[in-house]
Simulated assay, not measured.
Amino acid sequence: MTQLISAVAAFVALATGMAMLHDTTPRPADTSPRGWFRHVLRMAVLVAITASAGVLLLIPRMRGTSLYEVAFHCALAAFMAIQAPCPWWRYVTQGRAAP
């Protein structure tokens, strides 16, 4: 059962990471060096989260077997999904808004 919960959490993290990467702009709003640093760091973290969630989905033995690890994965995936600027579940339930 923990394998299934871990797979669902990895799928949520993967879908949210892909939606957040889709919504990012190539240039930051703040073009100062600090703004560029934060933008590049955010992009690197999003790519790392999306790639690691994909690995967890594709390689089942990489998923956590401990209940605490699964709870940690679920909490991180839920936190990231809540913080998404344009959540993927909005696309699923309502579709893209007309311009």
Rank of each mutant, 00 (worst) to 15 (best):
L57M: 12
S32G: 03
F79Y: 08
A7H: 02
A98I: 14
V40W: 12
L56D: 06
T25V: 07
A77Q: 05
L58T: 03
T50P: 01
A19I: 02
M80E: 12
L76S: 04
V55F: 06
E69L: 06
H39W: 03
T2R: 15
S52C: 05
V70D: 04
Y91K: 13
W88H: 10
V92R: 11
T16F: 10
V45A: 03
G35H: 00
H39K: 02
R90S: 07
M43F: 10
F72S: 11
M20H: 05
T93A: 11
H73R: 15
A7E: 09
I82C: 08
S66N: 01
R34W: 11
S52Y: 07
L21H: 03
R61D: 12
S66Y: 05
M18G: 07
L4H: 14
T93V: 10
A9R: 02
M80T: 13
P26D: 07
R96V: 13
W88V: 10
P85V: 09
Q83F: 09
G17L: 07
G35Q: 02
A48S: 07
S52M: 04
A51C: 08
Q3K: 12
R96T: 08
W36K: 13
L58M: 10
S66L: 04
A44K: 09
V8F: 14
T65R: 13
A71G: 08
R63P: 01
A48K: 03
A15R: 14
V92D: 04
M1P: 13
S32M: 03
Y91P: 00
S6A: 15
A75I: 03
G95S: 03
Q83D: 12
V45Y: 07
A97Y: 02
S32Q: 02
P85D: 12
L76E: 03
T24Y: 10
M1F: 15
L41G: 08
R34E: 15
P26L: 05
P87R: 04
F11R: 13
L58W: 10
A78I: 15
C86P: 00
T16A: 11
M20L: 09
